[in-house]
Design a protein around this nucleic acid. Sequence first.
DNA 1: ACCGGACCTTGCGGATTTCGCAGATGTGGT
DNA 2: ACCACATCTGCGAAATCCGCAAGGTCCGGT
Lengths: 173, 173
Amino acid sequence: MHSEVVASRSADQRDSSRESRNGGSPQLDAVSLAIIQQLQEDGRRPYAAIGKAVGLSEAAVRQRVQKLLDQGVMQIVAVTDPLTVGFRRQAMVGINVEGDVESIADALTDMSEVEYVVMTAGSFDILAEIVCEDDDHLLDVINKRIRALPGVRSTESFVYLKLKKQTYMWGTR
Amino acid sequence: MHSEVVASRSADQRDSSRESRNGGSPQLDAVSLAIIQQLQEDGRRPYAAIGKAVGLSEAAVRQRVQKLLDQGVMQIVAVTDPLTVGFRRQAMVGINVEGDVESIADALTDMSEVEYVVMTAGSFDILAEIVCEDDDHLLDVINKRIRALPGVRSTESFVYLKLKKQTYMWGTR
DNA sequence: ACCGGACCTTGCGGATTTCGCAGATGTGGT
DNA sequence: ACCACATCTGCGAAATCCGCAAGGTCCGGT
């Protein structure tokens, strides 16, 4: 039979009851974690190779991956460096709102230039990341479109000077 | 022969000289953009299917994708929802620095809990996103590790209440 | 006008991967 | 004990990947 992790597999599986002690919706066991880890290194890695690495058959890996995708636990996608794709201006915008915060957040979500929207506790109600082609574009989005939303009390912008880190390695620790 | 886009293909390719008017380092033409778009929808989509969609042969798509990966223009990876993977506390931290900003940014980059680091213009010198398992963990990272860095003058935290949008759709517009 | 380079196409096998299904195996509920 | 359910394994069959070779076209340089 194949390799390293195999011996302890059946035990590991039973562990899934324990792992499910995370509060997340569809509980993840150690094996699924390992699979995700593999796919975080290379989203196109073949199922057989993953199976060998985590101690599962090719078919089993396939089923797990499919379920993880169906459940929305993960997705396999191409991610790009905004700079090389022609977006030269980015900014984080802190927003303060009067009235319904969530409806403002929804409005931001509908803007294609807005890459990231999160409601927060602290001196901002919402943080939104904006990706634009140039300064004009950025100015337009912030001043004409965001500030124009009814209920937006104030905004503060943090223009990106240099992106130092950007990982997609959740669950890898 | 195959299908829709074929007729206008040779013309499209010649357009690539125009598209290269973006300032990005390794200029991207419209076809590569379209390929990226396909892989943003499904990172495992077969080359033949992509070729049909963008009007290229399977072999050509294969070569392009390989080059895009080699050049670091894009990567194909699994991305997960932090919540379901067991990280229940996230925050954005604004940091003010005295002295060398970049060395502080580098120090943050080395922390595994720090998912995102960017140097900014505005009332913060650095923004860092932190992903933690629970409140204790978050508190530890912010108070014990970040504030402990020599040169960090002050920090302000924005704990995430609700993530509303998170896309990886750059270049898709 | 000519050549070289970059890129695409078509075509082709062979190795690899994907995919569906049937047959274990283990677990929990009644 | 027995059944329902979930999961894993083990296959072939089909599809995909991958390298390679032989052109073709367009462009820029000399």
